[in-house]
Design a binder for these strands. Structure first.
Length: 886
RNA sequence: GGGCGGCUAGCUCAGUUGGUCAGAGCGCCUGGUUUACACCCAGGAGGUCGGGGGUUCGAGCCCCUCGCCGCCCACCA
């Protein structure tokens, strides 16, 4: 006998181990089977499971389990990302805390060794955590972005792109993170609103004939100014174009130039130009061939290009000093407070500086073209569709991608420098040496480039590198292109777009046919979860408290398109209760001998109840299948919830009770078998979303009836014929259910005591309805708590009339009720019917409606009008009787 | 500044192609020891579908406009 509730804690680890041991997680070894491939968005190896992962992986697992049960060779390929900056940070912090030698003291090799040791020890905790969710990944194929195979792929891609001139080296402004002393890409910069000041400085004309005022929020950069720009049409300054100002503090003469970039509307209309420390100014500098003076070192301290008294100062100290100097010189023309966006490194949190350095770049513009077309043509489809617009917008305006990072943890760039500064880009050092030998005519010492690649460079190859590329492996042939990618919209540029570019360029095919962008999980109030706000919910705590299934069902049920998930415990509790409900339904089946029957064919069911629930099951199976096929996760969950609770439990099991405890042995046997069959189908349909409880019930019910062919995880998905739906049975059940529901409503509204057992009077019914009500007498008696059903009677003053599917019914409960309450009820009901009749009458008497609306709509409205009028007549008669009696 | 999404019962959200579409869950109220389940059962109250205008015989559903809220991109004169 099952316990009263499901105990996830004791069952989940055992079932997970059984699944894994059974080999069910690996795609089945059938070359003829259609494949279904999902690659996991590799979590950072330093990461721990947060609620976003829980959502993302619950959805992937639902898809994979669904397709696996459908008989496909389903592969969910797991792995982790080496996460350059994040990991380097973690290990550096740990070294510091342990009082060990720092990174610089250890040296590159020593430090990287420490990172690997860290990874072996505590990296990848998240992978263990994924198992607690029930993720059915094929762990035998687990990869790491920095493992040997993926490193080969990375070098191959780099070298190939270099030789195709799609990777090149360039000296231009990058976003420089002074904390990590590395370049970062545009995407890794986040704008933060901060309070600042807006200073206005006077630059005296060289000949002393006046001054020109410029404004800045970064005064220290003036030390690197090489021009002042004004708009060519700006009458205020036209006469000054071509002349020079003398740059205060520095004393250098710099020209006043004419450039459209200067906006006469802004500030004084004149703008200082600092080509080496501002992206806009850089372009102006290029146009006018201005000198580019870099005044910062990698720590963002002022370097030797700054005046002596500024050298070595931090940029912000230099800023103060410059302002003081202007004040002292009498050249400060004003200060305003301002709130403005300032670029910060997304990982370091410090203000980044535009910095002039040599870096490696990918020609993203070229690679983007096929990637744009693939989405335009639908070769890859995004859901929700709106993501495509975001994608196009970015891809069509894409900038070169800076891929070099001045870090140690990552894929070292496969480029070797010769003594004369010539670079040899090859997949191995030996190949580089060979190339050098050919070039120089002799062996020369080569020095490998110090930089590593942006972590996203290796992630971009994930869908094919993990399958063995560049080798022509069986896996690659079989599982690429992957089917569906499930990920967050926050990495559409970082990751999705780049996988599209790399996948198409190197395999000629899209990396995935479909991308589903899952929602963002927020707290119960809609706030973004963040450590600083302290509103982070740990998914593992939720798993401990409610079980993995409850969490998974919650996240799945709330995964509608275009809406963030506001996660509340109450909601999870509700779905935990849903699991308990299912559990108890199974318990009921067990107690009532509802065992699977060898050879039972639902198509052969004879009882109305069983024909009806068979159809409802088929209908639900269809709805769930279609929902999962289209990533409509909320619809799948909703259909199951309603079916299990509101159809199977509320009605089928209730109707089954009299049959299961009655003396009609045939009816009992059929109902037992049919009910067991429905429960089995429910377990299968629910398994992708709630794998543990369903597998546990599958196991628990295995001991009754014929042996199970397999664990539920590999049981065949229900594909039920449309012929299972029996319209006649459905119509019958609709009538009986209405008779009970409406009758209950009457009883409750009039406070008829539960102990009262009046008969149910059928005052008007067609022969079919009569037959149905008669046939279902037992269930009606039990569920409506009436002692008999009487036909061919007329209602008297003491009966309360109501309607079910057009049949006129009544409950003679005069002795129990307050007649005034009944009068009130009738008056209220009649009023609402009158309102409806008026509305429908107005509609139908409008010649335009009759002329223009489709016939079936008009007919339907006519029918409703007739029904309403009949009901009204009955209720008015009842009211009249009541008044006569009272 | 550019783009996108949201605004439907107290709360969280469903509402495909305009015609039972005004719904669900939670919460709330009333009543229940019906031998599967109180993590339950039965019933009930609650909304002029953000405001305004338009198209249409008919609009949460289409168009225009305004207003909030959120996100993304750009922006340190």
């Amino acid at each position: 006998m099952l316990e009263k509730t499901f105990d996830p804690k004791s069952v989940e680890p055992r079932l997970y181990a059984q699944w894994e041991a059974s080999g069910a997680f690996a795609p089945k070894d059938d070359p003829g089977a259609a494949t279904f491939t999902v690659v996991i968005p590799p979590p950072n190896v330093t990461g721990s499971l947060h609620i976003g992962h829980a959502l993302n992986n619950a959805l992937q697992d639902a898809l994979v389990r669904f397709e696996r049960m459908r008989g496909k060779a389903a592969l969910w390929l797991p792995g982790t990302d080496h996460a350059g900056i994040a990991t380097q940070m973690v290990v550096e912090r740990q070294l510091a805390e342990a009082g060990n030698m720092g990174r610089r003291d250890l040296g590159r090799e020593g430090f990287v060794e420490k990172v690997w040791a860290w990874k072996a020890r505590s990296g990848g905790a998240i992978v263990t955590q994924l198992r607690r969710l029930g993720a059915s990944c094929d762990w035998g194929r687990e990869r790491f972005t920095l493992d040997e195979g993926l490193s080969v792929a990375v070098r191959k891609v780099f070298v190939t792109l270099y030789k195709q001139k799609l990777i090149y080296r360039d000296k231009r402004l990058v976003n420089w993170d002074p904390q990590f002393q590395t370049a970062i890409s545009d995407l890794e910069v986040e704008q933060r609103e901060v309070d600042g000041f807006f200073w206005r400085f006077a630059y005296p004309l060289e000949d002393g004939s006046g001054e020109i005022v410029v404004a800045t929020t970064r005064p220290e950069t003036m030390l690197a100014d090489t021009a002042v720009a004004v708009h060519p049409d700006d009458e205020r300054y036209k006469h000054l174009i071509g002349r020079c100002v003398r740059l205060p503090i520095v004393g250098r003469p710099i020209p006043i130039i004419a450039d459209d970039y200067a906006d006469p509307e802004k500030g004084s209309g004149a703008v200082k130009i600092t080509p080496a420390h501002d992206f806009n100014d850089f372009r102006v500098g290029q146009r006018h061939k201005l000198p580019m003076i870099n005044i910062l070192d990698p720590f963002a301290r002022l370097n030797e290009n700054a005046p002596a008294e500024y050298r070595g100062l931090d940029r912000f100290d230099a800023r103060r000093k410059v302002v003081e100097a202007f004040e002292r010189l009498g050249l400060l023309r004003g200060v305003d407070k301002t709130r403005h966006a300032v670029p910060h490194g997304d990982r370091s949190g410090v203000v980044v500086e535009p910095y002039l350095t040599d870096q490696w770049y990918v020609d993203a513009k070229t690679l983007a073209q096929p990637a744009i077309r693939a989405v335009e043509t639908g070769a890859t489809q995004f859901a929700p569709k709106s993501a495509e617009k975001t994608y196009f917008e970015w891809m069509r305006n894409i900038e070169p991608w800076c891929i070099s990072r001045q870090l140690w943890w990552g894929h070292r760039i496969p480029a070797w420098w010769g003594p004369d500064g010539r670079v040899f880009v090859e997949e191995t050092e030996a190949a580089a040496q060979a190339a050098a030998r050919e070039h120089y005519g002799r062996d020369e010492p080569l020095r490998q480039d110090e930089d590593v690649l942006d972590t996203w460079f290796s992630s971009a190859l994930w869908p094919f590198s993990t399958l063995g590329w560049p080798e022509k492996t069986e896996d690659l042939a079989r599982f690429y292109p992957t089917t569906t990618l499930v990920t967050g919209l926050d990495i559409i540029f970082y990751w999705v777009a780049r996988m599209m570019m790399m996948g198409l360029h190197f395999t000629g095919e899209v990396p995935f046919r479909q991308v589903f962008f899952n929602a963002m999980v927020r707290d119960a109030y809609g706030a973004k979860m963040s450590k600083t706000k302290g509103n982070v919910v740990d998914p593992l705590e939720l798993v401990d408290e409610y079980g993995a299934d409850a969490l998974r069902f919650t996240l799945t049920a709330m995964s509608g398109a275009n809406r963030d998930i506001k996660l509340s415990r109450q909601r999870i509790e509700g779905y935990r209760n849903f699991g308990t409900k299912l559990w108890n339904a199974a318990r009921f089946c067990q107690m009532n001998g509802c065992e699977r029957l060898e050879g039972f064919d639902p198509a052969g069911a004879t009882l109305t109840l069983n024909r009806w629930i068979r159809g409802e099951t088929a209908w639900t199976a269809k709805a769930v299948t279609e929902a999962l096929e289209t990533c409509a996760f909320d619809e799948a969950a909703g259909a199951l919830y309603r079916f299990v609770w509101n159809v199977f439990c509320d009605w089928h099991l209730e109707f089954a009770k009299p049959l299961l405890t009655g003396h009609d042995e045939f009816a009992k046997a059929e109902t037992r078998a049919a009910t067991a069959w429905v429960l089995d189908e429910i377990l299968k349909l629910l398994h992708p979303i709630m794998p543990f409880i369903t597998e546990a019930l599958w196991e628990a019910t295995a001991e009754y009836g014929p042996p199970r062919g397999s664990m539920l995880i590999t049981a065949p998905w229900p594909e039920l014929p449309a012929s299972y739906v029996d319209a006649e049975a459905a119509a019958e059940m609709d009538l009986v259910i209405a008779a009970i529901s409406e009758g209950r409503s009457v009883r409750s509204e009039l406070n008829v005591p539960l102990s009262a057992r009046p008969p149910l009077l059928v005052t008007e019914a067609d022969p079919r309805q009569r037959r149905i009500l008669e046939a279902n007498g037992a269930a009606i008696r039990q569920l409506l708590r009436v002692d008999a059903i009487r036909f061919d009677v007329t209602a008297d003053a003491g009966s309360v009339p109501y309607t079910a599917e057009g049949a006129a019914l009544a409950l003679p409960v005069a002795e129990f009720i307050d007649l005034a309450a009944e009068r009130a009820r009738l008056v209220k009901e009649i009023a609402s019917l009158v309102a409806e009749i008026q509305k429908l009458g107005a509609k139908l008497s409008n010649p335009d409606v009759v002329a223009r609306a489709p016939e079936e709509v008009v007919d339907e409205n006519r029918e409703r009008l007739a029904d309403a009028e009949a009901s009204r007549a009955r209720l008015e008669a009842a009211l009249k009787r009541l008044r006569a009696a009272g």
